[in-house]
C-alpha cells in the first residue's frame, strides 16, 4: 500500500508541475536521468540515501519505544563533527584502525547527545519532543563554535581541515561503501528489535509502559538506552557522510535532515528494513532534483511537495482505500500522547 501512496503522490505532483507551466513528462524524465540512469547517478542517489537511511532508522528505532526523536539533526552534526575531528587530528594510523575509530567516536558523541533527552525524560519527565528540538539548536551553535574556534582550518572559510586519507571510507567504483554499511546497520537494528530480549523490552515499553513496568522491565533504563541508540544511529549517518562524502565538517552540513528522517520512518511504517527502500526513494528525488531544474526548468522544491503528498497518502489509509476499495483497516499509528 505504501507503493500505491507513492504512485498517487507522483501523479498529484505531475498535476502541480503542469499547473506551474512545465511538462511533467520532461520533469520526471530528468528526475530519473539524474538519479538512476547510469552508475554515476546511481552512486549519487545512494550517497544521498545513506544519511537518510540512518536518520530514518534513528526515528524508527525511537518510535518502537514510543519515543519521538526530532533531534536527529543535532545528533547528526555532532557525529559528523567529532568524526571529522578524529579523522584529521590523529595521524599515522593504518586505515583499518583509523576509519572505524573515527566512526566510533562520532557514534559515541551522538549517543551521549541523544542520552540527554532520554535522561531528562526518565528522571524529570521533560517531554522528548521539546528537549530534542531545543538540543538541535544548541548542537548547531556548539558545533559551529567548535568548527570556528577549536578545530578550524587556517584560512577564511569556517570549516575543519580535510580528514586524513586513512580515515576516508573508500568508494567501490562509483558506489559509496557507506551505503552498504548503513544497510548492514539496518539489518542489525531489525535483528535487535526482532530477536533479542532488549528489543522485546523496547517494544513492550512502546506498547504499554505500565504493563512493561509491572512485568519487571525498568522503563527508565529502556527510555535512556533507546534515546542513546537513536542518537547513535543519527550520528553514524553524520560520521559516514563526513568520512565518505564531504571529507570534513562545514557549518550548514545537511540542513533539514532530521525532518527527512521522520518522513522516511513513517513511509517505512517504522520497520527497520523498509527504511532502506524509503530512503533510496527520497535520495533519488534529491539526487535528480538539480537535473530536473536544469532540463525541465522545474524548481527542485517540487520534491518537498511530493514528499509531503506521499506522507499524506501514507498517513491516511482511508484515501488510498477509496481508490483500491480494500477492506482491511491497515491503519498506521505512531502518536503517543505528550504524557510524561
Amino acid at each position: 500500500m505504501p507503493i500505491f501512496a507513492v504512485a498517487l503522490a507522483i501523479a498529484t505532483g505531475a498535476i502541480i508541475i503542469a499547473l506551474s507551466g512545465s511538462s511533467p513528462v520532461d520533469a520526471y524524465k530528468a528526475l530519473i536521468e539524474g538519479s538512476l540512469s547510469d552508475s554515476k547517478s546511481i552512486g549519487r542517489t545512494l550517497e544521498k540515501a545513506t544519511p537518510l537511511v540512518m536518520g530514518g532508522l534513528a526515528v524508527a528505532f525511537a518510535f518502537k519505544a514510543g519515543l519521538f526523536n526530532i533531534g536527529g539533526q543535532g545528533q547528526l552534526v555532532f557525529g559528523a563533527l567529532i568524526a571529522g575531528a578524529v579523522g584529521y587530528g590523529i595521524t599515522g594510523l593504518p586505515w583499518i584502525i583509523h576509519t572505524p575509530l573515527a566512526l566510533l567516536a562520532g557514534a559515541i558523541a551522538g549517543a551521549m547527545w541523544g542520552a540527554i533527552p532520554g535522561i531528562l525524560k526518565a528522571s524529570r519527565g521533560a517531554h522528548e519532543v521539546i528537549t530534542t528540538i531545543m538540543l538541535n539548536f544548541v548542537a548547531l551553535n556548539m558545533t559551529d563554535w567548535l568548527a570556528s574556534k577549536v578545530w578550524r582550518e587556517e584560512g577564511v572559510i569556517v570549516r575543519t581541515p580535510h580528514i586524513e586519507s586513512s580515515a576516508e571510507i573508500p568508494r567501490w567504483g562509483e558506489l559509496p561503501t557507506g551505503f552498504f554499511l548503513a544497510v548492514v546497520i539496518a539489518f542489525a537494528c531489525w535483528y535487535l528489535l526482532r530477536s533479542t530480549t532488549f528489543g522485546f523490552e523496547i517494544k513492550s515499553v512502546g506498547l504499554n509502559p505500565n504493563a512493561a513496568s509491572y512485568a519487571g522491565i525498568s522503563v527508565k533504563k529502556i527510555i535512556i538506552m533507546t534515546m542513546s541508540i537513536s542518537g547513535l544511529l543519527a550520528a553514524l549517518g553524520g560520521a559516514i557522510e563526513t568520512q565518505g562524502v564531504v571529507g570534513r565538517y562545514e557549518p550548514g552540513f545537511n540542513a533539514g535532515l532530521g525532518f527527512e528522517g521522520i518522513t522516511i520512518a513513517l513511509l517505512a511504517r517504522t520497520h527497520p528494513l523498509a527504511v532502506i527502500p524509503a530512503a533510496v526513494l527520497i535520495g533519488a528525488m534529491e539526487a535528480g532534483g538539480s537535473m530536473m531544474q536544469f532540463k525541465a526548468d522545474v524548481s527542485p522544491e517540487i520534491t518537498d511537495i511530493i514528499q509531503a503528498l506521499i506522507l499524506i497518502f501514507v498517513a491516511t489509509p482511508l484515501v488510498v482505500r477509496w481508490f483500491l476499495s480494500q477492506k482491511e483497516a491497515n491503519e498506521l499509528s505512531v502518536s503517543t500522547t505528550w504524557g510524561s
Binding site: 525532518f259 513513517l266 522544491e301 517540487i302 509531503a308 506522507l311 501514507v314 498517513a315 489509509p317
Partner: peptide, 19 residues
C-alpha cells in the same frame, strides 16, 4: 480521515517548506 496526528502535523511542516 482518522489519520495519525503527528504525521498530519509533519505533513504540514514539510509541505509548508516546499510550497
Amino acid at each position: 480521515l482518522r489519520g495519525d496526528q503527528i504525521i498530519a502535523g509533519t505533513v504540514i511542516n514539510i509541505a509548508a517548506i516546499g510550497i
